Amino acid sequence: MTTKHDQFWNIIAGIPACMVTTEDGDYIRARPMAPFVNKDARTIQFVTDDDSAKIEEMLLNRNLCLSFADTKTMQFASVSGKARMTEDKQLIKKLWGPYCDVFFPGGPDSVSVITLDASRAEYWDNDKNKLLLAFEVTKAYFGDHGPDLGENAKLDL
């Protein structure tokens, strides 16, 4: 794995929620979910209700896109790949946490796990503090060039 690949996985591992985008017929739908990021396996997993529309949409079209944003640090990432679903009870037990008790009152028997096998990604990594960011934006406003907000990379995973 390259340094850029490591940077991508480190960025998304530090963001507690992302938008999961699926196709719903002629529409594109996105909803917030809590990702479980596994850098070594190059996967991102989500616990979801067994009867979730996401599962039905994913079974019709396995392509998913995830969008991550941390506006405090100005770090952003997007990742695409193929999704798969499992009802593996050991995996559900491994991922189950206190938030699951809140969002899934039916307990572990009422959920499935969606796994995204990541294939393409892009990230924007800010390497500046808030003062330097403000300076870059101000400089761009009065200048002829956009602000330098840090590194941007597109990756094949």
Rank of each mutant, 00 (worst) to 15 (best):
G107D: 06
I44N: 06
G146Q: 08
E56W: 05
E56G: 08
K39W: 03
D144W: 04
D125M: 06
I44C: 12
D49A: 10
C18F: 04
V79Y: 07
D24G: 00
S52W: 06
K94Y: 04
L132G: 00
R31I: 05
S119M: 13
D70M: 03
S112H: 10
S67W: 10
E122H: 06
T22G: 10
D109G: 11
A13M: 02
M74K: 07
V113C: 05
A77D: 03
L155Q: 06
F8T: 06
L60K: 14
Q90D: 15
M33L: 15
I15Q: 06
S67Q: 13
P147I: 01
G146P: 11
V113K: 02
L149G: 12
A17T: 11
K54Y: 00
G150H: 09
M19T: 14
A34F: 03
V37H: 09
T86V: 12
T21K: 02
Y27A: 15
D117G: 08
A77H: 01
A30Q: 13
G25Q: 11
R42G: 02
F46D: 10
V37R: 05
I55D: 07
A30H: 12
V113I: 13
L131C: 02
I28T: 15
I114Q: 03
L60T: 10
L95F: 02
I92P: 03
I15C: 01
A118L: 11
E122A: 14
E151I: 11
T115I: 13
K130L: 01
V137L: 13
V137H: 03
I92Y: 04
I12F: 06
D50Q: 10
T86F: 10
T21C: 14
D101G: 03
D24T: 09
A140C: 06
L149H: 00
E136H: 05
Y141V: 09
S80P: 00
D148F: 00
K139S: 09
D40T: 15
M19S: 14
G143A: 07
D144S: 14
R62K: 14
G146F: 04
G106L: 01
G97P: 01
E122L: 13
Q90T: 15
V111R: 01
K54C: 05
L64Q: 12
M58P: 03
V79W: 06
N129Q: 11
C100H: 00
S119E: 15
T86H: 03
A13S: 15
F135R: 05
Y123P: 12
L133C: 08
P32G: 12
T138P: 00
V113W: 02
W124K: 02
V37I: 13
K82V: 11
L149Y: 00
D125K: 01
E23W: 07
T138F: 13
M58R: 10
W96T: 06
P98E: 12
P98G: 09
R62P: 14
I92V: 15
T3L: 12
V111C: 05
V47Y: 00
Q90H: 13
L149S: 06
A69E: 10
A77W: 04
K4V: 11
K89N: 03
E23V: 13
P32R: 02
F8G: 02
F76E: 11
M33Y: 08
W9E: 03
C18E: 05
T115H: 01
D144V: 06
L91G: 04
D109M: 02
A41K: 14
L95D: 07
I55V: 15
I92E: 04
V113D: 08
W96I: 04
P108S: 09
N129I: 03
